[in-house]
Design a protein around this nucleic acid. Structure first.
Lengths: 119, 119
DNA sequence: TTGAATACCTTGCAACACAAGGTACTGAAA
DNA sequence: TTTCAGTACCTTGTGTTGCAAGGTATTCAA
């Protein structure tokens, strides 16, 4: 990768990392999913997550009491671990909604100031 | 801090980290600033950065060719290191604008799907 | 019984934010 | 003229965390 795209890709990754937990909770608030399907849904909106990221993360979120899971047979292949969001998880999700809104508003502001000046 | 606010604060921090470089470039695209004033401007929009974060970061961005600096006398106290964005920096900033827009769009989408289903 | 597809999980490394601790310059007060 | 407060710069060490790589297990079909 040349340096031109590297810096941007790097930051794109960095930005994504910031919203990993948030997006997982958002997705699970819309319905139960298993790891691979979460990865796919995030990929669909261009938020790339690796397996090595999501499995430990789901375990952590479960430990924190934000998630639970149940095993479910798969049409083919090994059984799937369906994660579901808990009441506590939903409660936390509300806070994350605000956190995201606040960040987005902040970026919006410095963006506008920046444009208003020299750009 | 109780666990209720801890999880949210933690994620708020995580989200902020994702946009650190982006916000610095945004601010410098609006005019030259020195470290402390950058910290202040970010604080104004609720993006908190520590000194121990920003100094190494500015050095890194300079090394990458995104920034330059000049020394300038201060009305009182030691001289200030004013950072300015380079042409290359502006060019990269365009890419970061897109990266941010894309992420925001992604979050928007999964948010809506989530609401449309169960929330 | 071998192979492909799907699913789960762990280990080790590297990046990075930041708390803590430090230096240095200025001007004013004691 | 020393001391203090304010401002500004910088570095070190630590803890967290994302992820590439490598691994196991299940199912079904060829």
């Amino acid at each position: 990768m040349d340096i031109n795209t590297e810096i941007i890709e790097n930051n794109r990754t960095q930005m994504r990392r910031g919203v990993l937990e948030y997006s997982i909770l958002l997705i699970l608030a819309g319905g139960d999913e298993y790891a691979s399907s979460i990865i796919q849904k995030m990929k669909d909106v261009n938020i790339i997550v690796a397996e090595g990221t999501i499995y430990p993360l789901l375990i952590r979120l479960k430990k924190l009491g934000l998630l639970n899971y149940r095993w479910e047979e798969s049409p083919q292949g090994p059984p799937r671990k369906y994660y579901m969001i808990t009441d506590f998880g939903r409660q936390q999700l509300d806070g994350l909604d605000s956190a995201w809104d606040e960040l987005a508003r902040g970026i919006e502001i410095i963006r506008n100031v920046s444009k208003h000046n020299l750009r």
